[in-house]
Design a protein around this nucleic acid. Structure first.
Lengths: 167, 167
DNA sequence: ATAAAACCTACTAAAATGCTCTGTTATATA
DNA sequence: TATATAACAGAGCATTTTAGTAGGTTTTAT
């Protein structure tokens, strides 16, 4: 079983994409800023997401990524599967050769657990997540922070202009 | 979230202990042979299991480890907790500072998942596992293999004796 | 032409994992 | 009382994974 930052980043980024889907393609640079995930790392993750046909890309200026399906057709388990090898909890990766070429004492326990987790994550779509109150709250906070930073940049740009004009 | 060989080994070893509990303390050497887990590694795991008061030890010849509670009072989640730090699936370890000092978009999702997994594993006791048909089958296979190996050792001992007597 | 974006590949520091090695201490038994 | 068996302890280590950096190239809107 492997559920690390990698899978979490992927889900977070996909959710960010879902939230901002109405404004056309979303650039990884934007996601990187909002979600505080390294741009290069995002590129690697989205390379896998694209190969799994969860997103499609638009190159060039104004480009970015789009979900390749409707919000209710993309599930958390699919996203994690796309970037992580699997969410299999067994030791032998389901092969059943974990003890002396045969299954180990706890093989079926881990199979059951895997099924449990998979079932849980397979039933949560991006649509479900977008609709959640806590997600909305965090998303609004991030948008506010983004606007604040943009106006910061704007004013500092003005500062540069005015100081250069002073010379 | 972290569920690796470490936690799986711990649960497997505890289950082995549970199965062989009727014959007094079980040595790690025996568990190591049966479950194909390195003895030194088992020692490290049992050091933690003992600190979490899941097992008690008997030193000296004939010693080993015993479960410190009844089979239906020890749960898989406790065992994994004892050797692994936690089965928390959040990025921030539940601190809620995963994005800019506040929670990230998917914080509650991982909290929910953690609760789900914990709930599942908290309801499976060693008694439940011992009673499972698949566990019994594997256990019986391992006992047979152990006996076969023991008779192998015996006959090879005899071989050594007889060959040394030939000189 | 330029800049913005995706796309690609190699590399790397840090951490965790699973394990080895080398002891010591306690204790049952011969 | 000597010996062997077991727990107990801690240092170290190879490998893998993670998360990220770096340095490009290609595509395309403007």
């Amino acid at each position: 079983m492997r559920l690390t930052t990698k899978g979490r980043y992927a889900v977070t980024a996909m959710l960010d994409l879902a939230i901002h889907a109405d404004k056309g393609p979303v650039s990884l640079a934007d996601i990187s800023k909002r979600q505080e995930i390294s741009l290069s790392y995002l590129e690697q993750l989205f390379s896998k997401l694209r190969k799994s046909d969860l997103v499609s890309s638009v190159r060039g200026p104004g480009g970015g990524y789009q979900l390749s399906r409707a919000l209710d057709g993309i599930f958390v388990a699919q996203i994690i599967d796309a970037v992580n090898e699997s969410i299999d909890a067994t030791n032998c990766n389901g092969k059943g050769n974990c003890n002396n070429g045969e299954i180990c004492l706890t093989h079926h326990l881990w199979e059951d657990l895997s099924a449990q987790i998979h079932n849980f994550l397979s039933n949560i779509s991006l649509a479900n997540l977008v609709a959640r109150r806590d997600v909305k709250a965090v998303s609004e906070r991030q948008d506010r922070q983004e606007q604040a930073e943009n106006s910061d940049e704007l004013s500092s740009t003005i500062d540069v202009i005015s100081s250069s004009q002073l010379i």
